[in-house]
Computed example of a mutant assay.
Amino acid sequence: MNTSISTDLIRGHTDTILLNILRQGESYGYEIYKKIIELSNNKYELKEATLYTAFRRLEKEGYIISFWGDETQGGRRKYYRITEAGMERYEQNKKDWEFAKEILDQLIKGGINDGK
């Protein structure tokens, strides 16, 4: 039995996943990376390259902002914070996901005897 989810199934939802995490509070890359693994109960790991590509895209689109932390120990961290536009984008993406989930459920399970 496969114990991890296919990257293909997640690919279109990376932005929404990141916005969901950031709507709970500002954070930095590695912490977000760990949070995704934790939220998926170790069934999904977002590759770092994908994570940072998504950060750049979300920032360019105005959904998040980045800033440098003021750590005195070790290297400085780049933090990310969701914007008001990012909150709106998250809510819209969540609605789109709920709608798509219903349709997919019908397409995958529906039909003769309603999938029984």
Rank of each mutant, 00 (worst) to 15 (best):
residue 85 A to I: 01
residue 32 I to A: 00
residue 35 K to W: 13
residue 51 L to V: 07
residue 31 E to S: 15
residue 47 K to N: 12
residue 30 Y to Q: 14
residue 33 Y to W: 15
residue 31 E to N: 14
residue 116 K to N: 00
residue 62 G to K: 02
residue 42 N to Q: 15
residue 48 E to Y: 11
residue 82 I to D: 00
residue 13 H to T: 09
residue 32 I to S: 03
residue 116 K to A: 01
residue 64 I to Y: 01
residue 31 E to M: 12
residue 61 E to V: 03
residue 90 Y to A: 10
residue 12 G to F: 04
residue 30 Y to T: 14
residue 112 I to D: 05
residue 42 N to V: 08
residue 45 E to S: 02
residue 24 Q to D: 08
residue 102 E to A: 11
residue 39 L to T: 04
residue 75 G to K: 11
residue 87 M to E: 12
residue 70 D to A: 12
residue 11 R to C: 02
residue 93 N to Q: 12
residue 68 W to V: 09
residue 25 G to S: 04
residue 105 D to R: 15
residue 8 D to C: 06
residue 59 E to N: 11
residue 54 A to I: 04
residue 79 Y to T: 04
residue 23 R to P: 02
residue 87 M to S: 02
residue 53 T to G: 15
residue 21 I to H: 04
residue 44 Y to M: 06
residue 19 L to V: 10
residue 16 T to G: 12
residue 34 K to S: 11
residue 81 R to D: 07
residue 37 I to L: 12
residue 3 T to N: 11
residue 97 W to F: 11
residue 39 L to R: 08
residue 112 I to L: 10
residue 16 T to R: 15
residue 54 A to F: 09
residue 14 T to A: 08
residue 100 A to M: 05
residue 20 N to K: 06
residue 81 R to P: 10
residue 29 G to I: 07
residue 4 S to D: 10
residue 108 I to C: 00
residue 112 I to G: 01
residue 71 E to N: 15
